[in-house]
């Protein structure tokens, strides 16, 4: 059974990580990244052609994690598959012992490296959750009975930092009705804003795992503020990074990330750490955040 599910249902605080499949067939590096997380996380997200850039599939990499006794969260986007492919991939994933699925819309192809691709979006993320729930109950989306059914632990994403946040909250509610049992969020840098979101959604009663992206520099913060939806790194944090000499950046990154985690911890049921290459800092962050 999914350890992620078990812990979240028991009300325990979880830590999850993330790896990005490579553009090619050599999985060594991404599996090594996963290994560095082994002792610290409950489950590891495997991204599905993130930013619409062609990569090896998330199902294959998730299956390799399973083989090693690591628990994946299989990310599945609506961007590239129609309803037949989505359902078939879900059944295939279950056959490979993948139990956690994150149902997401997916970045538009024009953001990636195959800009002329036909965007599919035959289903949206809410509809995909519905369909996955149906498979769990033994039926495909045309209401035909399956000869045997999976039992996925279904999750979705929410972006708490968007302004206005209300459309996100409305959609979050729809996702829950469609079968979503946990949420992962876009990176949180402003605990105050996150608290506001947590207050608005607490009554939904579904565990939220707060996203944490390790902040590497002031330039990265400024870039994200301008270009990544729902991320607003506060000015105070940007100056804190800017005032740090280059050689101390990693130390600062650990300090800042651990501080954010400590601040959001009472407001959520887990943190999803996205190290963006600074994987080696994760153990220290977890220690300083007093999570271990």
């Amino acid at each position: 059974m999914s350890k992620l599910k078990e812990k979240l249902e028991k009300g325990q605080f979880v830590i999850t990580g993330e790896i990005g499949p490579p553009k090619g067939v050599n999985l060594e590096k991404c599996l090594n990244d996963a290994e560095t997380l082994r002792d610290y996380v409950t489950a590891i997200n495997v991204t599905d052609q993130q930013s619409a850039v062609l990569r090896i599939g998330s199902m294959a990499v998730a299956a390799r994690l399973v083989q090693r006794g690591l628990e994946p969260v299989y990310q599945l986007t609506c961007r590239d598959r129609n309803r037949l492919a989505l359902q078939s991939d879900l059944l295939s994933a279950w056959a490979l012992d993948i139990q956690n699925v994150l149902c997401i819309t997916g970045d538009h192809p024009t953001l990636g490296d195959h800009k002329e691709a036909k965007p599919v979006y035959d289903l949206d993320s809410v509809q995909l959750l519905h369909v996955a729930k149906g498979l769990n109950q033994g039926y495909d989306m045309a209401d035909h009975e399956l000869d045997s059914s999976p039992d996925f632990f279904l999750g979705a994403v929410v972006t708490p930092g968007l302004d206005p946040v209300e459309p996100q909250v409305i959609k979050m509610k729809k996702k829950i009705d469609a079968g979503c049992r946990f949420f992962q969020t876009q990176a949180v840098y402003s605990p105050e804003k996150f608290e506001d979101f947590a207050n608005k959604t607490r009554s939904f009663g579904v565990p939220v795992i707060a996203g944490v992206v390790i902040l590497k520099s002031a330039a990265m913060a400024k870039y994200m503020n301008e270009n990544v939806a729902g991320i607003s790194v506060p000015d105070s944090l940007i100056s804190e990074m800017a005032d740090t000499p280059k050689e101390d950046r990693k130390k600062k990154a650990v300090e800042v990330t651990a501080r954010i985690i400590r601040q959001v911890k009472p407001l959520c049921q887990g943190v999803h750490i996205m190290p963006l290459g600074w994987d080696e800092l994760v153990p220290q962050i977890i220690k300083e955040a007093e999570l271990s």
Partner: peptide
């Protein structure tokens, strides 16, 4: 742009 029927993606 994605023809989503049940609300916005997180990209705006």
């Amino acid at each position: 742009a994605k023809g989503l029927l049940n609300g916005p993606c997180g990209g705006a």
